[in-house]
Amino acid sequence: MNQSPWQPISPEKPARPVREPLTRERIVDAAMALLVEQGYEAVSMRKVAQALNTGPASLYAHVANKKELDQLLVDRAAQEMEFPEPDPEHWQEQLKDSMRSMLKVMRSYPGVARAAIGQIPLGERALESTEKMLAILKAGGVPDQAAAWAVDLIPLYVTATAFEESVQGAWAWTTEDIEGFVTQLRGFFEGLPPEKFPITIALATALTSGSLGDERFEFGIQVIVAGLASLAER
């Protein structure tokens, strides 16, 4: 039927832009971006919802709460960690390389360490990382209970290192600031009462030497791997 000549012509309604459906992947993407750009404290369900141009209630259909979101962030980071195929002849170096890879990833995502502290990682990728680390330990003959405790101790050490670095990074200290602090700290140790702290005074230089990053981290992984090697069954 033809339109009546006196009937007003209805303007065409502009098509609404199609919204990309909300998924767990998109939520984790947005949360990870906030984590890297603004730090762990900035990551809340409300802020993630704002970044996705939606309301917090929409997020809860995909993520139960902030605790689960932390798990998802840790799991996202875990997928980038590298673990070699177990080699009984080189398991100690493989374990060290695995710890270096874990720290490298956590440095790439400042704030992930804070999300991981105090949690038992139960995501699929995090569990795969645990499985691969257990395989390296068992290839080296580490007893079952020691291996089980080691896969708790190792991430705890790496996570604590990364978390400490992220806290120090937030201070925005320059090289000169760090050198000045170390000099003051050494002077503090040297000025302690000698009758109460003779060894601390004697080791004042050693206590304030070594870089805050890789050098001390390497010492830690050497101690951990040497301790596990001493327990290995031959």
Score class of each variant (00 low, 15 high):
Met1Gly: 15
Gln184Leu: 15
Val48Ser: 04
Arg76Lys: 14
Thr205Gln: 13
Ala64Thr: 07
Ala31Tyr: 08
Gly180Cys: 04
Pro143Thr: 04
Gly169Pro: 02
Asp75Val: 06
Arg19Pro: 05
Ser98Gly: 09
Thr23His: 08
Ala202Val: 08
Asp144Lys: 08
Gly213Trp: 05
Val167Cys: 07
Ile120Asp: 15
Pro194Val: 13
Gln145Asn: 14
Thr200Ile: 14
Arg186Ile: 07
Phe181Glu: 06
Glu85His: 04
Ala57Phe: 12
Leu156Glu: 03
Trp149Arg: 04
Glu89His: 08
Gly187Phe: 12
Gln184Pro: 07
Ala49Asp: 03
Gln50Val: 11
Leu72Ala: 05
Gln50Leu: 12
Arg216Cys: 04
Thr183Gln: 13
Lys132Cys: 07
Pro110Val: 09
Trp6Glu: 08
Gly123Gln: 10
Asp97Ile: 05
Pro21Cys: 07
Ala15Thr: 15
Ala172His: 06
Ser211Ala: 15
Trp6Met: 12
Ala232Gly: 02
Ala206Met: 12
Ser101Glu: 06
Asp214Gly: 15
Met133Tyr: 03
Glu85Thr: 12
Glu41Gly: 13
Gly220Thr: 02
Gln94Arg: 07
Leu72Ser: 05
His62Thr: 03
Asp177Trp: 07
Met106Gly: 06
Ala170Val: 04
Ala15Phe: 12
Phe219Ser: 13
Lys13Val: 15
Glu12His: 03
Ser108Asn: 13
Glu128Cys: 05
Ala162Ser: 05
Arg24Leu: 10
Arg24Ser: 14
Gly123Met: 10
Glu93Pro: 01
Gly187Glu: 11
Leu95Val: 04
Thr54Asn: 02
Gly213Thr: 14
Thr205Ile: 11
Gly39Asn: 05
Met81Lys: 04
Glu128Gly: 10
Gly39Ile: 03
Ala31Trp: 02
Ser129Pro: 01
Ala146Thr: 03
Phe83Gly: 00
Lys96Asp: 06
Glu179Cys: 05
Gly210Gln: 12
Gln92Thr: 01
Pro84Ile: 06
Asp70Trp: 02
Val43Pro: 01
Thr54Trp: 03
Val28Asn: 09
Glu124Lys: 13
Arg26Cys: 08
Thr175Asp: 14
Ala226Leu: 03
Glu190Trp: 02
Pro11Leu: 11
Gly141Val: 00
Ser108Met: 15
Ala172Leu: 12
Met32Glu: 13
Ile117Cys: 04
Glu20Trp: 08
Arg24Gly: 14
Gly123Lys: 02
Ala31His: 01
Glu85Lys: 09
Phe189Glu: 03
Val43Asn: 00
Thr208Ile: 12
Gly210Val: 12
Glu164Tyr: 04
Trp171Val: 06
Leu52Ile: 10
Ala57Trp: 09
Thr183Gly: 07
Ile201Gln: 09
Gln38Trp: 04
Asn2Pro: 06
Glu218Ala: 13
Ser98Thr: 08
Glu20Leu: 15
Glu195Ala: 15
Ile224Phe: 04
